[in-house]
């Protein structure tokens, strides 16, 4: 179940990357910028800005078997009753402007790579390749492993972005095909992790440590999405450093400053964004925290942000 394939990404591993977002996640981080990636099945999304209204169009209205689409507003645009919607997607093909669309498609390894390989001339120059992201890409271990294995056969550098909140057997399937593993250290304290991310971090940390030790050839890059008031404290950064520094194959630790990327997408899915009052961390704070990391690694780290699907 693929959510999206994003070309020309520059922050998801070395060189120019093509990032494949897989759908479905085991965490529920409140700051999630890809809410459409959480559920493992296709979901309807609606962007009212693109709707041209029931006078010019209105083709979707009779298509919905659940009568979840209606139009009563003076602007003539349609609205969705999200509690009735079953994501059957019958309305999507009836929508000329593409205001109604589906998040998530079943694709084969071959189909994904055909799209990814559009970028192969650029990998040659940049040392780039494919990155699997999500959602949680290790939730589809067989597909992810097959995709990465074939990508490697075709000469690509392979990377994944993962939270590691999956059974170890999944990790065992995926990581043998990975060159670079970008993985999250969201919050150190298990209970606070549960509060903010919907699950504690015990299994995550076990997997991380075991992965570092089991796969010495993989380059691991630790990351923290820096959320103001949640994990932007020095103690967390130092705890992560203490966790990763004994392992020489963890080659870097990056901070991803929080941006309100995903906000509009919550609306498209008929959901509410809970972090409305949050602001991105200040430059001063970032600089201070990065200095701590620099010191631990003995070199500079760069400002990094994550690619959005």
């Amino acid at each position: 179940m693929v959510l999206n394939i994003q070309h020309f990404c520059t922050h998801d591993g070395p060189g120019m990357r093509t990032t494949v977002f897989l759908k479905g996640c085991t965490l529920r981080c409140k700051w999630c910028s890809n809410p459409e990636s959480i559920h493992p099945r296709p979901e309807l999304a609606y962007n009212p800005a693109k709707c041209i209204g029931r006078t010019e169009c209105g083709f979707c209205l009779p298509k919905c078997p659940e009568h979840a689409i209606f139009s009563t507003d003076p602007d003539l645009k349609v609205r969705i009753n999200w509690t009735l919607c079953t994501n059957c997607s019958q309305c999507v093909s009836a929508c000329p402007p593409g205001a109604l669309s589906l998040f998530g498609h079943e694709l084969t390894v071959e189909e994904v790579l055909a799209e990814v390989e559009q970028d192969s001339p650029f990998y040659r120059e940049s040392g780039g390749g494919i990155t699997l992201s999500g959602g949680e890409c290790q939730l589809q271990p067989d597909f992810a492993a097959a995709l990465l294995e074939e990508a490697r056969h075709r000469g690509m550098n392979t990377a994944i972005e993962t939270a590691f909140n999956v059974p170890w057997e999944n990790v065992e399937k995926v990581l043998p095909h990975v060159d670079v593993c970008l993985h999250d250290h969201k919050i150190s304290d298990p209970e606070r992790h549960r509060k903010w991310c919907g699950a504690d971090n015990r299994r995550i940390q076990e997997n991380q440590k075991r992965a570092y030790e089991t796969f010495p050839g993989v380059k691991f890059i630790a990351r923290t999405p820096l959320i103001p008031g949640v994990n932007d404290d020095e103690a967390h950064i130092r705890a992560v450093l203490a966790f990763i520094r004994p392992h020489p194959n963890v080659i870097d630790y990056e901070l991803l400053p929080y941006f309100r990327f995903g906000e509009s997408k919550y609306g498209f899915l008929g959901r509410v964004y809970e972090l409305e009052d949050f602001q991105p961390p200040s430059e001063e704070l970032l600089a201070r925290l990065r200095a701590i990391i620099d010191e631990a690694f003995g070199r500079a780290t760069a400002i990094t942000r994550k690619t959005q699907p």
């Binding site: 041209i52 010019e56 169009c57 083709f59 000329p96």
Partner: peptide, 12 residues
Amino acid sequence: VGHEAVRQLCLN
């Protein structure tokens, strides 16, 4: 004019 849905199909 009056055929916006057709235009949208063409655009998309």
